[in-house]
């Protein structure tokens, strides 16, 4: 198998680095066709182009608003760099691009658009929710208040909650296809929101500081009592009953477990 291993390694090397991989890149030896004068490098270059284009298009498919905001030329540039630094590591192209927001955060030349990484986080959240399994509706009616307090909740994978110092939801909406030109002022301030899916429908819901904290605290496996305390700590008049209703009907909470029973001495 060593021959095949060697051949695939050098093929891959060329796909990733092209002719920049060295003065004379080591490439697999190809057959010469009697009907054409293509050099080996030219034939391999087709695969290199396909590789770059397909990963770039996958990235543009997940991040259409980023593409729009930075423009085609810059997007090509940043995508090429991203592909080099964060290779695809599964056979499913939909997994590609998960680190793009952090990459943009550190990318030189984008300092003038400080909200860009958070817009990318929103777009990745949308993509995650698009591909996630929908949660199940919980039935909590059998539980009394005391039992509720000690429960921990499991959160569904079909929702992602995020916050930003920038009005990223408005920026995202203003840049959807078919939207009339509007101006979004950064002075509008930050936003907390959750992205979730109901069947084919992907929805954004704005969250108050209290509800955001409630979800965040439950996600850390805190008890419901602890999560409520955290929520009320950031928003004193947070209506916990309404918040819980929201979490259940939106299937944000997907399951619950009772605390481990304390060991009894007999």
């Amino acid at each position: 198998m060593n021959t095949l291993r060697e051949q695939q390694r050098s093929f891959a090397q060329f796909i990733v680095n092209g002719e920049d991989g060295g003065d004379a890149p080591e490439t697999p030896v190809l057959k010469q066709s009697p009907s054409s004068q293509f050099k080996d490098i030219q034939r391999l270059q087709i695969y290199r182009n396909n590789f770059v284009i397909s990963l770039r298009e996958a990235l543009a498919g997940v991040y259409p608003v980023i593409h729009k905001l930075v423009g085609e030329a810059f997007f090509h540039h940043v995508a090429r760099e991203y592909i080099q630094h964060h290779p695809s590591c599964t056979g499913n192209l939909h997994d590609f691009g998960d680190k793009f927001a952090d990459f943009l955060q550190a990318f030189p030349g984008l300092e003038a658009l400080p909200y860009l990484p958070d817009v990318a986080r929103l777009e990745w959240a949308y993509h995650q929710v698009f591909h996630a399994t929908e949660g199940e509706m919980l039935n909590l009616s059998a539980l009394d208040e005391k039992q509720m307090a000690s429960l921990t909740f499991e959160l569904s994978s079909h929702c992602v909650w995020l916050s930003s110092d920038y009005p990223v939801l408005r920026i995202w909406q203003a840049n959807q296809d078919g939207q009339e030109e509007t101006t979004v002022s950064l002075d509008e301030g930050g936003v907390r929101y959750v992205v979730l899916r109901h069947g084919p429908q992907i929805e954004f819901h704005l969250l108050s500081a209290g509800v955001f904290t409630l979800i965040d605290s439950l996600a850390k496996s805190n008890t419901f009592a602890q999560a409520c305390e955290d929520a009320l700590g950031v928003e004193a008049d947070c209506d916990i009953a309404v918040a819980l209703q929201f979490l259940v009907t939106q299937k944000i909470v997907n399951g619950f477990s009772h605390p481990p029973t304390a060991s009894r001495t007999t």
């Binding site: 891959a12 695809s88 056979g91 192209l93």
Partner: peptide, 8 residues
């Protein structure tokens, strides 16, 4: 190759 995918 070595877990890096070219998705082609």
């Amino acid at each position: 190759v070595n877990g890096r995918y070219f998705n082609d």
